[in-house]
C-alpha cells in the first residue's frame, strides 16, 4: 500500500512538472517562431522610427544600468547593516519591510514614482523610470546581501577582530570578499529581473521612437515599446513586437545563465 501511494505521488509530481515545462517550452517555441520570423540584423542598426530596435535596446540598458547604480549601493549597504550591525528589532523591521517591498506589485511602484516624481516634475523622464527600476531592485539586493553574508562563518569575523582589525575593516576586507561570488550572482539576477520590467516604466519613462541620451525626457524602452507595438493595428508593428520580445528574452536568458555559471564555477 505504501509503495502504491509512493508511485501515485511520484506520477503526480512528474505530471505537474511536465505541465509546467510544457508551458515554458510553448512560450519559448512561440517566441522563437514568431520572433525569428521577423528578426533581422538591421533591427540592431535602426531606431524605432526607422522600423528598428536599436534605440530601445540601448535605452533599456541605460535605464537598468542607472537603476543599478542607484540600487546596488543602497541595497548592499542596507544588507550589510541588517546582517553585520543591526541587532534585534530594527534589523528585523528592515528585513520585513524589504521582504514586503520585494513582493510589491510592480505597477504599484510605477504608480508611486508617477505620483512623487512624474507629476511634480511635469512629465515622464528617463530618471523617473530608472528610479522606479531601482526601487524594484533594492529589496532584491538587500535580500541577497543579507543571505550571502549570513553564510560567512562567525569564526572568520572573529579571526579578523582577533588580529586587531576594526569591525568595518573586517567587513570590507574579509566578510564581503568571502561572500563576493554569491552577492555578484544575486546582483546579476536582480539586473536580469529589472531589465525585463514593463509596469514600472509604463508611466514613468514611457518610451520614445527616437534615439536619446537625455534622461530628463521620455526615454526609449524596449519593454514599453513592445506593449505599445502589440496594441497597434498594423501587422508589421506586431511582428516588430515579436522580434523585440524574442531579443529581450534572449538577453534575460543570457544574463541569468551567466549568473548561474558564475555560481557553479566559483563556489
Amino acid at each position: 500500500m505504501r509503495l502504491f501511494i509512493n508511485k501515485i505521488f511520484l506520477a503526480l509530481s512528474v505530471f505537474s512538472a511536465l505541465i509546467g515545462l510544457a508551458f515554458l517550452g510553448w512560450i519559448l517555441i512561440t517566441l522563437f517562431i514568431k520572433g525569428l520570423g521577423s528578426f533581422h540584423f538591421n533591427l540592431f542598426l535602426n531606431d524605432l522610427i526607422e522600423g528598428g530596435l536599436r534605440n530601445l535596446i540601448i535605452g533599456q540598458f541605460i535605464l537598468a544600468g542607472l537603476a543599478s547604480l542607484i540600487g546596488i549601493p543602497i541595497g548592499m549597504t542596507a544588507g550589510i547593516y541588517i546582517q553585520e550591525y543591526g541587532r534585534g528589532k530594527y534589523a528585523a523591521l528592515i528585513r520585513d519591510l524589504s521582504d514586503i517591498m520585494m513582493s510589491a506589485p510592480s505597477i504599484v511602484i510605477g504608480a508611486f514614482v508617477y505620483a512623487i516624481i512624474v507629476v511634480p516634475t511635469g512629465g515622464t523622464s528617463g530618471y523617473a523610470g530608472a528610479i522606479a527600476l531601482a526601487i524594484m531592485m533594492i529589496p532584491v539586493v538587500i535580500n541577497t546581501t543579507d543571505n550571502m553574508l549570513s553564510l560567512v562563518p562567525r569564526e572568520l569575523r572573529e579571526a579578523g577582530i582577533a588580529l586587531g582589525a576594526s569591525k568595518y575593516r573586517v567587513i570590507l576586507d574579509i566578510v564581503i570578499k568571502a561572500a563576493k561570488v554569491g552577492i555578484m550572482t544575486g546582483i546579476l539576477l536582480a539586473f536580469a529581473r529589472i531589465i525585463g520590467e514593463t509596469a514600472p516604466l509604463l508611466f514613468t519613462s514611457e518610451t520614445s521612437n527616437y534615439f536619446s541620451l537625455n534622461l530628463s525626457e521620455s526615454f526609449p524602452s524596449l519593454t514599453v515599446s513592445i506593449y505599445d507595438l502589440a496594441n497597434e493595428p498594423e501587422e508589421s508593428s506586431r511582428d516588430l513586437a515579436w522580434a523585440a520580445s524574442f531579443i529581450l528574452t534572449v538577453m534575460v536568458l543570457i544574463i541569468n545563465l551567466t549568473g548561474r555559471f558564475i555560481t557553479r564555477n566559483k563556489k
Binding site: P153, E155, L156, E158, A159, G160, I161, A162, L163, G164, A165, S166, D173, I174, K177, A178, K180
Partner: peptide, 18 residues
C-alpha cells in the same frame, strides 16, 4: 586593537581569509 595585537588567537577551524 592594541590588546589584540598583544594577545593573538587561533581558532578551532582554520580561518584563512579569502
Amino acid at each position: 586593537i592594541k590588546l589584540r595585537q598583544q594577545v593573538g588567537m587561533i581558532f578551532q577551524k582554520p580561518t584563512p581569509f579569502p
